[in-house]
Every structure is written in C-alpha cells, then in structure tokens.
Design a binder for these strands. Structure first.
Lengths: 139, 139
DNA sequence: GGTGTTTGTTATATAACATAACAACATTGG
DNA sequence: CCAATGTTGTTATGTTATATAACAAACACC
C-alpha cells in the first residue's frame, strides 16, 4: 500500500507526537495523573504561588479549561488554592502533591530517556533544537 | 517565570506538533477540509479502491471513527463508495474530490516548505529521520 | 459446512480544546 | 478620588479527536 503521507515531515511530526503522548500517558496512568495535570504540577512546583491564569498562559491552555484541571488536582488533594487579593488565587503543591510529583518526575525522566534513545545517535542532538525552532521560533 | 518543561524533548515534541497542526488546520479551513479528511483523501487517491478498514489501519484511526469521517466526505461529494463483495466498500475520489484534493495538495506543499524553513539549516536534514525513528522505530 | 475473523456500523464515553458571557475585582489615567 | 478598562476565576456550551463495546452480515479456511 502506497503511503505518500510518510514523505511529509509534518505528518511524521504529528504521528511521532501522538505515539509519544500515548506512551507517556500510559506510563503516567498508574499514578492517576494525566499529561496536562502533570505539567501543571511541574510548573506549580517551579513557581510556587503562581495563579491559574499565568499557568494557562505558560501551558497554552485557556483560562476556562484550567478550571476543571485544577479542580481535579485540588479534589485529589494534590494542590491547594489560597486567595491572593480577592481576585487571584495562589497555587501550591500540598505535601501529598509533592510526593506524587516526585513519583511523576521519575516517570518523566525514564520516559524522556527512552524517547531520546529511540532516535539514532547522529540525529539525537538535532531533535530538540529543531522542535524548539518550530514552536518557539519567531512568528 | 521558570519553565522546567522547556528542557524536555517530549514536551517540545508535543508543543511543536500542536503548533504545526494549528497552522495546518488554519490553512486547510478555507477548503472546507479537516486534517484527517485531507489525509484520507491523499491515501484514497494513492490507493484507489481501498477499503475503510485499510485506510483506518494506515492512518491509525479506529474503524468506528472512520464512519463519520467518510460520511462527511461522501456527503460533500468528494468520495464515493462502491460495494466490493457485500462486506467491504471500495473507496475512490469523485471528480470533485480530485479537484479539491489538487487544491489541498498545494496547501500541503506550501505548508511543508514553510515548516521546514522554520528549522535552522544545520538541523533540517535530521528532523524527519529523527521523527520517523520515534513513530516507526522498532517496538 | 461450521468456526473464527473481518467489515461496516451504531451507540456511547472521554479527553482536549474553543468561545462567550459574567461578576468581582484591580489598575491606571486623569 | 473615581471612571474607564482590563484581569481573574468561573459557568455554560460546543467541537474535535479518540476509545470501547456490541452487532449483523459476510467472508476465509480447514
């Protein structure tokens, strides 16, 4: 079966991302965490006291969609919200959240190493710079 | 704001793919086509007479999810289904489908060139091989 | 020729993401 | 000071992509 799609870098990009996200989600599932939840927790740990809006901007998630995400994390006892000024809330990890995130971080590390190991050595150093140019590059 | 996520290739992969798919979809929108519909049409043209199941296997789309996709294309008059053996249907592009796909192909070409142009020259030759290893690689 | 598999399909559920509206609040420019 | 403007968290709602389970009809093969 002829597959002309395989000649397109854009198609390869999508398929690769999709395959890797499937794998990553599967590894995260035992912790009861989703992909987006985990990234939120990583950012909250790195920036204690951030607000939902700031988080959404960093993750490129709409303000409105942060609500259910953070609700899940709060209900699970992993994060807590505290009023900053009557409008914004300050986000931080609970002790349980810190424990869970530590577990998640070993999953992340293992996964990232596994991912990089999949790409042939000659190409390895080029992957991240190329991807960064795609999503961070000017314009 | 500290963003530890930016150090992960996996995160960059996801963000890059998401950014590129947003751009691609926007370019396809004027033609009234979605991403998945377009890839289906490309494969149908390259393999006239394929069935929905085969298509789904190539695109990694569940059989069940092919139904609404192909229904849309058929309703739009872009593809036609003909019984092969009472169980399978043979898929092919209608004349209108061929015209539409030709338009889509110029969009694809422009997009793919634009995408590659975004990555710095040194990394350019490595992107596709690296991505292919990620989604096609053994295991 | 009966058993197991494949096909297209329906129904249904979930995740991710988008938009619009809103009240409460903060900021700032005059 | 205060009026105009923008921000925050939130609800409600819709769309797209994707997943599973079930089904009848048809096929393959031994």
């Amino acid at each position: 079966m002829a597959d002309p799609l395989q000649s397109f870098p854009g198609y390869a990009l999508r398929r690769a991302a999709s395959a890797m996200m499937t794998e990553f989600s599967a590894r995260l599932a035992p912790l009861g965490l989703r992909y987006a939840e985990t990234s939120a927790m990583v950012l909250i740990e790195a920036n204690p006291g951030t607000t939902a809006s700031q988080l959404g901007r960093m993750l490129d998630i709409q303000r409105a969609n942060m609500v259910p995400l953070l609700n899940r994390l709060e209900t699970a006892g992993l994060i807590s919200r505290q009023p900053i000024d009557g409008k914004s809330h300050s986000l931080s990890l609970t002790p349980a959240g810190q424990v869970r995130l530590a577990e998640a971080k070993t999953v992340i590390d293992t996964f990232e190493h596994w991912l990089i190991a999949r790409v042939p050595e000659e190409h390895r150093p080029h992957l991240k710079p190329a991807l960064d140019a795609l999503w961070l590059g000017e314009g």
